[in-house]
């Protein structure tokens, strides 16, 4: 009896640990071998044919909070998020999502993850219903859960009116809604947004920001990458500033604001980047 209680307590503690940090990034480094042409393009003048995209990154993200990854273009944000989403393997270090290792338990990680990028495309020749069904099938959703989630998402996003029209014939705002439904159809515990508002008009971008708030309010772990300052204040609970593959700041966003030495967020960001060796 005593042993059973102890085991139960240990399980709850492990579960709590897992839940406390839905994403744990430890010492992650990712390097790429450069082709000769790529070396010329990146103006890499060193003799080495290796490009370090991210170097020794460590941080963690908690549920019910939005973790913002802020950095200029080419800082390594997308590479890091691709590692989180198991699309890439880290050269060194490890990442755990919902307690699962992204290298050795990649399928388990992906099952719990929603991934959305700004340049996410859709299949023009499918209808929103067919597209969302395709992703639900790939996530192994039972039919009843698929129907329930689909109806709920389509209702909230107002997709029902154009659910059976070919995606190629939809407006960009409609397409973005379909993209959101695709990302959320399996009700993921962790949602990764890689510059999701890039190139969108104000109204569509606002829909994305609302979605991020929704995710946070429903207890999901959100990791959001951007280079747009105004969005940082709108959504962030935690902030990491990344530049040239290294973390320049990582912590509570409120604390960041209180410690700012510049007048504006933008000024502070530039100041931090300026300190980079």
């Amino acid at each position: 009896m005593g042993i059973a209680i102890c085991e139960s307590v240990r399980f709850v503690v492990r579960l709590n640990e897992r839940v406390r940090h839905m994403i744990e990034v430890q010492n992650v480094t990712k390097t790429f071998r450069l082709s000769r042409a790529r070396k010329r393009e990146t103006e890499n003048r060193s003799r080495e044919n290796i490009l370090t995209a991210v170097s020794g990154l460590s941080f963690s993200c908690r549920p019910g909070r939005v973790f913002t990854l802020l950095g200029p273009n080419g800082a390594g944000k997308t590479t890091l998020l691709r590692i989180l989403a198991t699309m890439m393997r880290p050269t060194a270090g490890s990442v755990r999502v919902c307690g699962f290792d992204t290298v050795h338990q990649a399928a388990e990680v992906r099952r719990r993850l929603g991934f959305m990028t700004g340049d996410t495309g859709l299949y023009d020749r499918l209808t929103p219903t067919e597209l969302v069904r395709y992703y639900a099938d790939l996530f192994g959703l039972p039919r009843d859960r698929y129907l329930e989630n689909r109806d709920s998402l389509f209702g909230r996003l107002g997709i029902h009116d154009f659910a059976d029209r070919r995606i190629g014939k939809l407006s960009s705002g409609m397409k973005q809604k379909v993209s959101i439904a695709r990302t959320m159809i399996h009700d993921p515990e962790v949602v990764v947004f890689d510059e999701p508002t890039a190139g969108l008009d104000v109204i569509t971008a606002r829909a994305i920001i609302d979605l991020i708030h929704d995710c946070r309010d429903t207890g999901k772990t959100v990791i959001f990458s951007t280079h747009i300052m105004s969005e940082v204040s709108l959504v962030s609970d935690d902030l990491a500033v990344i530049h040239r593959g290294r973390l320049r700041y990582c912590g509570d966003f409120k604390a960041f604001r209180s410690q700012m030495r510049s007048d504006s967020l933008e000024g502070e960001f530039i100041r931090i980047l300026g300190e980079t060796p």
Binding site: A85, M87, R110, G114, Y135, L138, F139
Partner: peptide, 8 residues
């Protein structure tokens, strides 16, 4: 990318 982010 989105296809690769599924468990498939």
């Amino acid at each position: 990318e989105t296809l690769l982010s599924t468990p498939a």
